[in-house]
Design a protein around this nucleic acid. Structure first.
Lengths: 136, 136
DNA sequence: AAATATTTTGCAACGCGGTTGCATGTAAGT
DNA sequence: ACTTACATGCAACCGCGTTGCAAAATATTT
């Protein structure tokens, strides 16, 4: 059975060509994508709104996660298989100021931070900006 | 001489009532503010556009900085006197999921992260979400 | 294989956040 | 007080994202 269909079914989603194409785009381009990126790649075939809705359902089902950015929202594949119930919440992303790409740094964990008394942290989001290996 | 006027002059800005009021709002409310927050507080007196432009100039002059958020852009006062040339770039912000407030954690420094080879970091932005002391 | 129930898509329209152009008003230097 | 340079208000506009609804596609049942 097709890999894409399998992933969609695993998250209790009907397989449609739009969902397959969006998922496929996330897999081949590995960096974080904005709605505009996807519209640029697939906009000929699908309506803007459909892409928005696809992103929304993928978010809800735990297939992708939001990526914080200083200039707009992006999305990236969840590494460990997240589901609707359980979600891996800590992320480190690196944004290259030269090429503009944002990538997840999967294997890093966020070091402990000494919070002042009374603060109860639930999840962490670290955005590091600089120059990536390709642009050095 | 007035504190507000002095700060504005220090950053080479003309003193206008709008700038004084926006700056004053940032000082009294201590948390990060969105444009909407400011419009709610001062909207009777000033045009939306003027508030946008005030935020933009404050950003450029180093009086405030952007605060990343999962649902929209906010701004907060720069702690150490930043200027147009020099800017303190590392920030830790805590967003309370209960009351919705976002605050800068000024005295913390971001712990070192072991980046893969080739990545050259320039600045760090850490967003921690959870529950703040007031909402515990 | 055909019929049904359910979900997804496309289209149009809308709302919100933010920006730009331009004429008027205001602050600061002489 | 006069002048110059900058700041404001207004109107219009753009882009991102959402919603309602009818038509199309998917999955399920017989």
């Amino acid at each position: 059975m097709d890999q894409l269909k399998e992933t969609l079914k695993g998250h209790h989603l009907r397989t449609t060509t739009c969902r397959e194409d969006v998922l496929s785009t996330f897999i081949t381009k590995k960096n974080a994508l904005s709605h505009g990126d996807l519209e640029g790649a697939l906009g000929e075939n699908y309506d803007r709104v459909t892409i928005y809705r696809t992103l929304k359902t993928f978010l809800e089902k735990g297939i992708i996660h939001k990526v914080l950015d200083d200039e707009g929202l992006r999305y990236a594949l969840c590494s460990h298989n997240c589901s609707e119930e359980q979600h891996q919440h800590d992320h480190i992303h690196f944004k290259c100021n030269a090429c503009g790409e944002t990538n997840c740094l999967e294997n890093l964990s966020i070091p402990a931070v000494q919070l002042p008394a009374g603060y109860k942290p639930q999840n962490f989001n670290l955005l590091i900006q600089g120059t990536c290996p390709k642009c050095n």
